[in-house]
């Protein structure tokens, strides 16, 4: 259908396998080695589609990060009830007594 709008011209940004692997680590995801080339190619196509934005001159255009025009939303410094510890830890996959438990943190 509207595919004609997004011609597959050559990749400006080369989405390479090492780049994808680096991003995957940053995102705390795994990419099975057998899948890495396919994932890189797919992301490459999406990034190419996204790069049609470069056809527009946006010099001096103020970025719009959020359409809300609101300002100054506050709450007052009044305590509200916390959850009980049982409720707070009810959905946790691994807990021990009062704590959540995770693999040893090195830092």
């Amino acid at each position: 259908m509207t595919r004609h709008l997004y011609p597959l011209f050559s990749l400006r940004m080369d989405i390479t396998r090492p780049l994808v692997e680096k991003v995957a680590l940053l995102a705390r995801l795994e990419i099975p080695p057998a899948d890495a080339d396919r994932v890189a190619a797919q992301l490459g196509r999406i990034v190419t589609m996204v790069e049609t934005l470069n056809k527009l001159d946006t010099k001096g255009v103020e970025p719009l990060s959020n359409p809300t025009g609101l300002v100054d939303a506050f709450r007052s410094d009044e305590p509200r009830p916390s959850l009980s510890r049982d409720e707070a830890l009810a959905n946790a996959p691994d807990k021990v007594e009062m704590f959540l438990r995770v693999p040893r943190v090195v830092e």
Partner: peptide, 13 residues
């Protein structure tokens, strides 16, 4: 006591 001053917001639910 540990994990008694928490709610859905500060737990990041």
């Amino acid at each position: 006591d540990p994990n008694t001053l928490v709610c859905p917001i500060c737990l990041g639910l």
